Amino acid sequence: MGAEFKGFGKDAIPFLKALGFHQSREWFQENRELFERALREPFGDLVETLTERFGALGLGLRGDRKKSMFRITRDVRFAKDKRPYNQHLSAILSPDGSKSSEGVLFVYVGVDRCFAGVAWWQPRPELLQAMRSAIVARPDEFRAMSDALRSNGLVLDDDERLKWLPRGFEQVAEADLGEAVRNRHFVTRHDIDPAGIHGPDFVEELVDFTLRAKPLLDWGRAIEKHPPR
């Protein structure tokens, strides 16, 4: 386990703002030490501190500083926007510690916003089909999960929701189930005050959010184990 998370450096967000004006490898290399000290190293500490906490709580989410964080460099090969650097840094904690696993905690620290999400994001086609089928076949379980999220101050996002019911689900008549079946992802988010990322209490904020979002994790995991027939 790495160092315990003590907070992002006070220069974390100012560095990301400055990066927007200095989109060059030369500037980044000149300021790499600041990036490492204020952002990358604390983010690694955060991932590994959360891994330890989640392990103790049995949440089934883990990561490490090498595999869990996304690069700050952008893949510009097929992008119209050729700026080489993101103005954010992010990481995923997942059941197996990889970025490709499903049912994850995503943490994003950026100039535009800071947030965390518990997500079944772009689930593989067979899992998405199973989730949609479970909503229809076992509606009480879906509604119980949604109610539990609401009781915990959370809601499911409607991000990128389909306009129409997908093929095979055209007969779903109940409004709440129809909305759910049209989801392409199953996500709940927590907005983070950037002022709160600079101390160890940020760990407690993320642990609290993940516990409140656990009904969504549990719902998806149950479907993985026992998909509708």
Rank of each mutant, 00 (worst) to 15 (best):
L46W: 06
R32C: 14
D112R: 14
E48M: 02
P84C: 10
Y85S: 08
D64H: 03
R37A: 14
Y108W: 12
W27E: 03
S100N: 06
A79F: 13
V107A: 10
I92C: 09
S98G: 08
S24D: 10
E30T: 15
F43R: 00
A116S: 11
V47M: 08
L105S: 02
V109G: 01
W120T: 14
R37E: 11
S98H: 04
R74A: 15
R62N: 10
G55V: 09
R77P: 04
F28D: 07
H88V: 12
G97T: 04
T73P: 08
W120I: 11
S101T: 10
A119C: 11
A38D: 06
S68H: 01
V104H: 00
K67Y: 13
D81K: 06
F43I: 04
E30Q: 14
E102T: 05
S100C: 05
K82S: 11
L46N: 06
G97Q: 03
E41T: 15
F21M: 05
E52C: 09
D75K: 03
F35D: 01
H88K: 05
D81Y: 11
P84V: 06
D81S: 10
P95A: 05
D112N: 15
K82A: 12
Q87N: 15
V109A: 04
G58F: 09
F70E: 04
R77V: 09
Q87H: 12
W120E: 11
F78G: 10
Q23V: 07
F21C: 04
G63S: 08
A38Y: 01
L50G: 00
D64T: 05
G60S: 07
F115W: 13
H22D: 09
R62T: 12
D81R: 08
V118M: 09
S24T: 12
A79R: 11
E48C: 02
Y108D: 02
F54E: 00
A79N: 10
L93K: 09
D64Q: 03
C114Y: 01
R113M: 13
L34Y: 00
K99P: 07
F106V: 11
F54P: 00
V47P: 04
F35H: 07
G97I: 08
R77E: 03
G117Q: 13
V47W: 01
L105Y: 02
Q29F: 07
S94Y: 03
R32E: 05
K99M: 14
P95N: 04
E52W: 04
R37Y: 09
V111N: 14
F78I: 11
W120L: 13
F70D: 06
M69Y: 14
L50E: 00
S98Y: 04
D45M: 11
L89M: 11
T49E: 07
Q29R: 09
E48F: 01
T49W: 03
Y108H: 15
L50M: 05
S68C: 08
R113S: 14
R40Y: 08
A38G: 05
R40S: 09
S90T: 08
D81Q: 13
H22I: 14
F35V: 09
R32I: 13
Y108E: 03
L59E: 01
A119M: 12
R40P: 07
